[in-house]
C-alpha cells in the first residue's frame, strides 16, 4: 500500500498491527484444550467414555452424561479453565461424563447411525448406571448429539431420567435453516461413494462459508485489538485450533443424518428409523430442558423449539440464550448463566 492519504495510512497501519498480532499468535505455539482432569471409564468400538475428576464423592452428586456431535471435537465445552462448561458443572456439584467419539477409519465407512445411538450411547449409559448403581441417567445432548439423545430417549425411555438438549435441531427444514437449504440437493450416494468417510475439512469449509465476511475476514482483522492482550490471543488460538480440528464423518452415518434429516426431515415426520425401530418422539415423557441460541446461524432457534410439539413430557422447559451456536459455550455471559441454569433445573428433578 502507498500511504497517499490519511485513509490509506490507516489501512497500512492496520496491516502492520495485524502482522504484529499474528506474529505474537504464532509465538504462542499450539495451545492446549480439553485439559480438565478426567479418567477413561469405558473403551468401546468407536468411542470412549470419560468421567471427570472431582474432589467430592461423585456418586453423591447428580450425574450428567454429555453426548456431543460427531462434527468437531467436544473440547469447546472445555476450551480453557475460564471458559469450560464442564468445569462449571463440576464446580456446581455434578458428576460429569462425556462420550468421546473415535475418528472413523476406512473400515468404518458403513457404520450406521444405529451403531452410534443404539450401541455406543447405550453402552455408555449402561456403564454410567453401573458406576453409579442407578437405573437411568441424565442425558445432555449437544447439537447433533442432542438429536442422538432424543432418538435414544425415544427408543429407551426407561434409561433416561432427565433430558437436556442444547442447540439441537429437531425440525431440520425451518425457513431460516440455511444449512438445510444448501445440502437439500446434494447427491449423497455419489458423495459417500466417492469419498467413503466425508472429510472434516470439507464440512468446515461449508460451516465457515455460512458467514464469509465475519469468519473469513473480520475476525482476523479484529486481532489488531488483541496485540496487547496475550490471554485474549491465547483464547483466540484455542478457538482456532478447535475449529480447524474437524474429524471425518463415517460415510453411511453421514448420509443417513443429512439425507434422512436435512433432506427429508424424517424425525418430525415420524419416519426416522434407528436399529429397525421408528423413532417416536412422543415416547419421551421424562422432564426435558431445551436450551438454544437466539442468534444461532447453524441450528436456528426455530429448529430447536419445534421439540415442544413433538414430545409427551408434561415437564418441558425452554432456556433461550441471546447468543450463537458457539457463544452459548464459550462466551463469558454463557459461562455465568448456562451451566448454573442447567444444574439448578437438574438438581430439582434428580
Amino acid at each position: 500500500m502507498s500511504p497517499s492519504t490519511p485513509f490509506a495510512e490507516e489501512a497500512q497501519k492496520l496491516g502492520q498491527q495485524l502482522s504484529l498480532s499474528l506474529q505474537q499468535l504464532s509465538a504462542l505455539g499450539v495451545p492446549s484444550i480439553g485439559t480438565t482432569e478426567h479418567e477413561t471409564v469405558l473403551r468401546g468400538d468407536g468411542f470412549r467414555l470419560l468421567r471427570y475428576v472431582s474432589k467430592a464423592t461423585r456418586n453423591d452428586r447428580p450425574a450428567v452424561l454429555i453426548v456431543y456431535a460427531l462434527v468437531n471435537r467436544p473440547w469447546v465445552l472445555d476450551l480453557e479453565p475460564e471458559r469450560s462448561t464442564i468445569q462449571r458443572f463440576l464446580d456446581l456439584g455434578l458428576d460429569v461424563f462425556l462420550i468421546e467419539w473415535a475418528d472413523p477409519t476406512v473400515s468404518d465407512t458403513d457404520r450406521e447411525l444405529s451403531d452410534y445411538i443404539s450401541r455406543m450411547v447405550k453402552e455408555s449409559v449402561e456403564r454410567v448406571c453401573d458406576l453409579r448403581q442407578e437405573s437411568a441417567v441424565n442425558l445432555l445432548g449437544v447439537c447433533q448429539g442432542g438429536t442422538f439423545s432424543l432418538c435414544f430417549s425415544a427408543l429407551y425411555p426407561d434409561k433416561v431420567k432427565n433430558l437436556i438438549t442444547m442447540v439441537t435441531p429437531v425440525d431440520f427444514q425451518t425457513a431460516d435453516n440455511v444449512l438445510s437449504q444448501w445440502v437439500r440437493h446434494v447427491d449423497l450416494d455419489r458423495l459417500v461413494g466417492c469419498y467413503g468417510n466425508v472429510p472434516g475439512a470439507m464440512l468446515n469449509a461449508l460451516f465457515i462459508s455460512l458467514q464469509p465476511f465475519r469468519l473469513g475476514s473480520k475476525k482476523y482483522l479484529d486481532l489488531v485489538d488483541l496485540a496487547e492482550h496475550p490471554e485474549a490471543l491465547a483464547t483466540f488460538a484455542r478457538m482456532e485450533r478447535w475449529i480447524a480440528d474437524s474429524p471425518a464423518q463415517a460415510g453411511r452415518a453421514f448420509a443417513q443424518f443429512i439425507g434422512g434429516l436435512y433432506q427429508r426431515n424424517a424425525l418430525i415426520k415420524g419416519k426416522f428409523v434407528i436399529d429397525e425401530r421408528i423413532v417416536d418422539l412422543k415416547k419421551i415423557k421424562c422432564p426435558v430442558l431445551n436450551v438454544y441460541g437466539l442468534t444461532d446461524h447453524l441450528v436456528p432457534a426455530s429448529a430447536s423449539r419445534a421439540l415442544a410439539d413433538q414430545i409427551s413430557s408434561p415437564d418441558y422447559r425452554e432456556l433461550a440464550f441471546d447468543g450463537g451456536h458457539i457463544g452459548i459455550y464459550v462466551s463469558r455471559r454463557a459461562q455465568a448463566e448456562i451451566p448454573a441454569a442447567i444444574t439448578t433445573w437438574l438438581k430439582a428433578r434428580d
Binding site: L18, V30, A201, N204, A237
Partner: peptide
C-alpha cells in the same frame, strides 16, 4: 494481507486459513 498472514500462522498455531473456493478441492 489478512489471507497471507493467517495462512502463515496456520502452520504454527493451528489457525484455519481463510477459505477460498479452491479449498473445496484441497479439502478432499
Amino acid at each position: 494481507t489478512i489471507r497471507a498472514q493467517s495462512l502463515g500462522v496456520s502452520r504454527t498455531a493451528g489457525a484455519l486459513p481463510i477459505p477460498s473456493l479452491a479449498d473445496w478441492l484441497a479439502a478432499t
